Amino acid sequence: MNRIFLGAAAAALAATPAFAHHPLGGLPMTSFADGLLSGVGHPVLGFDHLAFVIAMGIAATFAPARLLTPLAYVAAMLLGTLAVSAGLALPLAEIAIVASILVLGGVVLAGRTLGVGTAIALFAGFGLFHGAGFAGSILGQEGGVGAAVMVGYLIGLAAVQYAIALVAGWAARRLLGASESMAVNARLAGAAVFGVGLFLALEVVEGPLVAAIAG
């Protein structure tokens, strides 16, 4: 089992944000189906978002209301996507996304059990910034997108991330045999997610550090 986690961690650490492209490969989105496909694919192909949702699902499954608390993330994520798409700026969104992976990965790694209020606050707070990240996919479409594309995109985002969170929690309990948050296998999963966060954090600071050294 440890080998599985070490392999997963190595694969995750090898991933970069460059994978966070929607499955249409940058082609224009013109229909509800295009938006839906992009919404489903973006969180799966984007390892930063995927790592957070997996950690959230594991953290939620050991907390009260494990089916409810991930919905706080979904609601806030949709709100963030719509807000930024409408022109509202969320500063330092990329840094907040990396911080969210470190925080939730750290929670799972530490074996902490979140209360309902804490879980909702963390999931929703970070969800706004993940939504800002998803909005970039829509805003990057040349010529913008229509209402049908946006609706499909939002439905895809909401459905796939909620499903991933539930599956991650189920896998922690059933496949990994983790009956509580302090279980070793659950904490190993947290370590893998935390490792992804560290890797992404290094990428964020790499540019400024190189510029400072060169200057």
Rank of each mutant, 00 (worst) to 15 (best):
R3C: 09
L6I: 14
L6M: 15
L6A: 15
G7W: 12
A9M: 15
A9K: 06
A11P: 02
L13T: 15
A14V: 14
A14H: 10
A15C: 15
T16E: 13
T16K: 10
T16W: 06
A20H: 07
H21M: 14
P28N: 14
M29V: 09
S31F: 10
F32V: 12
F32C: 07
F32R: 12
G35H: 12
L36Q: 11
L36C: 08
L37K: 13
G39E: 08
P43F: 01
V44N: 11
L45K: 07
L45W: 08
G46N: 05
F47W: 14
A51F: 00
F52V: 10
I54W: 02
A55D: 03
A55Y: 01
A59I: 07
A60P: 01
P64L: 11
P64I: 13
P64F: 08
R66E: 14
L68Q: 09
L71V: 14
Y73P: 09
A75H: 02
M77W: 07
M77R: 02
M77T: 12
L78A: 15
L78T: 14
L78H: 09
G80Y: 05
T81A: 13
T81S: 13
A83I: 12
A83Q: 08
V84F: 01
S85M: 12
S85K: 09
A93W: 12
E94H: 10
E94P: 04
I97V: 15
I97K: 04
A99K: 02
I101P: 04
V103S: 05
V103Y: 04
L104R: 00
V107I: 15
V108M: 05
A110D: 10
G111H: 05
R112Q: 13
G115D: 03
G117M: 04
A124D: 04
G127V: 01
H130L: 04
H130F: 04
G133W: 02
F134I: 09
G136C: 06
G136T: 12
I138R: 06
Q141F: 03
Q141C: 09
E142T: 13
V145N: 03
V145Y: 02
V145M: 04
G146H: 07
M150G: 11
V151C: 06
V151E: 08
G152L: 07
Y153E: 07
L154T: 07
L154H: 03
G156M: 05
A158T: 13
A159K: 08
V160T: 14
Q161G: 06
Q161A: 08
L166G: 13
L166R: 13
V167F: 13
V167T: 13
A171C: 11
A172K: 01
R173G: 08
L175E: 10
G177A: 07
E180H: 10
S181T: 08
M182G: 09
A183D: 09
N185T: 12
N185Q: 12
A186T: 06
A191E: 02
V193M: 00
F194T: 09
G195W: 00
V196M: 05
V196Q: 04
V196K: 03
A201Q: 01
E203I: 06
V205M: 01
G207M: 01
G207D: 04
P208H: 00
P208R: 00
V210H: 01
V210M: 06
V210N: 02
A211T: 02
A212D: 03
I213Q: 02
A214P: 00
A214M: 00
A214Y: 00
G215L: 00
